[in-house]
């Protein structure tokens, strides 16, 4: 564990709770992509199956349980409790266009052809693109609530911090996982446009709105 990973994990946790709290406090999930949230739930469930087979640490297990539970709770709030506020007209990204190719790639390019390893690989690939429905939704409506911007910034920062963690681990531990690194780069690159808008607008107290 190094500082980049720890802050990355905390940033990830913060993102999920900012979103949950936003939905809970406002009793509304307007502007949030339910499809991205379903993909994240799928990411956590397929990645953390090793909860049952492989104990690493209390921290590790606890975080996994929190990530699964909080994301499933978000999906529940969006599709059941506050379904009336869900903006499905703008959430039109076809997730099968992500899940199917990513599933195929996980079968073809993995470290080990075993069920758990293929699911882990699927999860890593899927996570890298799971935010696309949310970004697509913002591009359709042309704007995002400030709290949603904070959520996205924390969520994007998490993987960027993991990239620093992987650089650190490569130099100091000789550790290198090509699948995680490539997927992590793709994931971070997808946020670049958003990061630019966040830094130039939201940080200066303006609402995130896209140029017409």
């Amino acid at each position: 564990m190094n500082i980049f990973r720890l802050v990355g994990d905390l940033s990830h946790l913060l993102a999920i709770f900012v979103l949950l709290l936003k939905i809970w406090k406002s009793r509304s999930c307007a502007g949030v992509s339910g499809k991205s949230q379903i993909l994240f739930a799928l990411v956590f469930i397929t990645r953390y199956l090793d909860l049952f087979t492989n104990f690493i640490s209390v921290y590790n297990s606890l975080m996994k349980v929190i990530f699964i539970a909080s994301t499933v709770a978000t999906v529940y709030l969006m599709y059941i409790k506050f379904k009336a506020t869900y903006d499905s007209n703008h959430d039109t990204f076809r997730i099968e266009f992500l899940v199917v190719p990513v599933g195929g790639l996980a079968f073809l390019v993995n470290h080990d052809f075993t069920p758990l390893e293929i699911l882990w690989t699927f999860s890593i690939y899927l996570e890298s693109v799971a935010i696309l429905p949310q970004l697509f939704m913002i591009s359709k409506t042309g704007e995002a609530e400030t709290i949603t911007s904070h959520y996205l910034f924390a969520l994007g920062s998490y993987r960027a911090l993991y990239l620093l963690n992987w650089i650190y681990r490569y130099y100091f531990e000789g550790y290198f996982d090509l699948i995680a690194v490539v997927a992590g780069c793709v994931q971070t690159i997808l946020y670049c446009d958003f990061f630019y808008l966040y830094i130039t607008k939201v940080m200066w107290g303006k609402k995130l709105s896209l140029p017409a």
């Binding site: 090793d50 690493i56 640490s57 470290h111 882990w120 531990e173 699948i179 995680a180």
Partner: peptide, 10 residues
């Protein structure tokens, strides 16, 4: 370093 090492990450 094998792939298993990565699985201590979240």
């Amino acid at each position: 370093s094998n792939s298993r090492d990565s699985h201590d990450e979240l």
